[in-house]
């Protein structure tokens, strides 16, 4: 996955501080990161390390205090339909059916094309038969599929996933990870995936960016040269997991 692919997302010397009650809280410090086109990068860190804030800045939802984010060489100033942010499944619109949600971002398309696109992504995420169901009638994993399909339907270049499987039970989470890998291999999107789950990052990522505790800065970037599908009991996988565990453990001790 690495090779000579173009740089898609370039984060340069990015810092973020919040001001509350006259106190300055430094959340992120001097983040430098290049994400290549088609790469799946996990941003891993302890809770409160600012990894979600980083994703929100890259997504254009929050301004940086200093530094730059550029995508395809152009600075990011606001959210853009070419880059879709996937929340935990709570971002699904409860007043729309599965079809209505998946078609939300493509209302400008001609009706037949829109219907075909919706049908395609319903199939891709395995929700056939639930097209007219409302989110409240679905399980958490199914809602998460709806949200991923809604994001993919607008054919974005980049997906931002903010602990997308954090609210799911552990079995559903495993299924959703392999589903995400399958979809990523079909659709070839650039993916930035925020998680605090070491196993999750080792199973998914091309590269793992390990952040320190607040103020978050990059401790280490780990290239994962394990091919998919990954054997979760192989010595190489376990060695990788243990090295990151140690890294995070050190982060906790500081």
């Amino acid at each position: 996955m690495t090779g000579n692919a173009e740089v898609k997302v370039r984060i340069q010397d990015l810092s973020k501080a919040f001001h509350t009650n006259g106190h300055e809280i430094r959340v992120l410090e001097h983040i430098d990161l290049d994400v290549r086109e088609g790469e799946l990068v996990c941003i891993l860190g302890p809770s409160g390390c600012g990894k979600s804030t980083l994703l929100n800045i890259v997504g254009g939802f929050l301004p940086a205090s200093s530094g730059d984010v550029a995508i395809d060489g152009l600075p990011v100033r606001r959210p853009d339909p070419r880059r879709i942010f996937v929340f935990q499944e709570r971002g699904v619109f409860p007043w729309l059916t599965v079809e209505g949600n998946i078609g939300f971002g493509i209302s400008g398309l001609p009706a037949t094309e829109r219907a075909a696109r919706i049908a395609h992504y319903v199939r891709l995420v395995g929700l056939e038969g639930f097209e007219n169901a409302y989110p409240q009638e679905l399980s958490g994993g199914m809602k998460q599929r709806v949200e991923v399909a809604r994001a993919l339907a607008v054919n974005p270049d980049v997906l931002y996933l903010d602990e997308p499987f954090g609210a799911l039970d552990s079995i559903t989470r495993l299924v959703m990870r392999s589903e995400l890998l399958r979809i990523w291999q079909t659709e070839r999107k650039t993916i930035l995936f925020v998680t605090h789950d070491i196993e999750e990052s080792c199973q998914l990522a091309d590269r793992i960016v390990v952040l320190s505790a607040r103020p978050g800065s990059i401790r280490r970037v780990v290239e994962v040269d394990l091919p998919h599908p990954r054997d979760l009991s192989s010595p190489r996988y376990l060695a990788l997991r243990d090295s990151i565990l140690e890294e995070i453990g050190l982060a906790h001790r500081i």
Binding site: P81, F87, R90, G91, G105
Partner: peptide, 12 residues
């Protein structure tokens, strides 16, 4: 919820 607004803005 702010998440719905953010999603709406994200879709342009």
């Amino acid at each position: 919820p702010g998440m719905y607004l953010a999603a709406g803005r994200n879709f342009g």
